[in-house]
């Protein structure tokens, strides 16, 4: 097992790197196609805006490399927060922006026009986990740290394996074949988060 955290020049990489080290993973941070190719597991981190993030991925040619590794080579990938949102077809953050389109759906802003819901959604929220989840199976009473204003509206709900409640149900975990994504931050979610990261690196290619 060797993990490559994809560096596209955005986001807080130190936190996820520290967490992976803590659980004993063999981990590197890189945007080098060769290193990405030679890793068994990929992590796509991210905070910040969708538009800027996709631009940076594309500028470095990482969209093509990721498409090849994830879609052709079926390499396990974990998208975190914005990293997960990139899996969508489009996002409405900063105009309509195209995503990687691995899981059909759109990313849109949490709607608080008709409620007094505070946006961003910040804090620890309970997860409702579907038993089919490979990242966290049969865990009820569990909570993770969220910080986001946009959420992933997945077209086919069978790919949603975890949700949390904030006004409406919000997609918390997506899983489709070798593609995994979490809206919350496992690297900042104490023991539950570390468990998810461990489960991810134990997924066989």
């Amino acid at each position: 097992m060797s993990v490559c955290i994809i560096d596209y020049g955005l986001g807080n990489i130190a936190s996820i790197f520290n967490a992976m080290k803590y659980i004993g993973a063999d981990v590197i941070v890189s945007d080098d196609p060769f290193k990405i190719k030679n890793s068994s597991h990929l992590i796509l981190p991210g905070v910040g805006s969708f538009k800027k993030g996709m631009q940076k991925l594309n500028q470095r040619g990482l969209d093509e490399i990721l498409n090849f590794e994830v879609i052709n080579n079926k390499k396990p990938i974990l998208g975190i927060c914005l990293g997960m949102q990139f899996f969508a077809t489009t996002s409405s953050e900063g105009g309509i922006v195209k995503g990687l389109d691995w899981i059909s759906g759109n990313v849109s802003r949490i709607n608080n026009k008709l409620s007094n819901l505070r946006v961003p959604h910040i804090g620890w929220n309970d997860l409702k986990i579907n038993s089919t989840s490979r990242l966290l199976n049969n865990n009820i009473d569990t909570h993770c740290y969220f910080v986001h204003s946009y959420y992933f509206n997945v077209n086919n709900t069978k790919y949603i394996t975890g949700t949390c409640s904030y006004g409406n149900d919000i997609t918390a975990i997506v899983e489709k074949d070798n593609i995994y994504g979490v809206q919350f931050h496992p690297e900042k979610s104490h023991e539950t988060g570390l468990k998810i990261l461990k489960n991810f690196i134990n997924i066989k290619c």
């Binding site: 807080n12 905070v47 910040g48 800027k52 961003p120 986001h148 204003s149």
Partner: peptide, 8 residues
Amino acid sequence: SEEFGSQC
């Protein structure tokens, strides 16, 4: 907030 996202 445009550069790093509002959330941080």
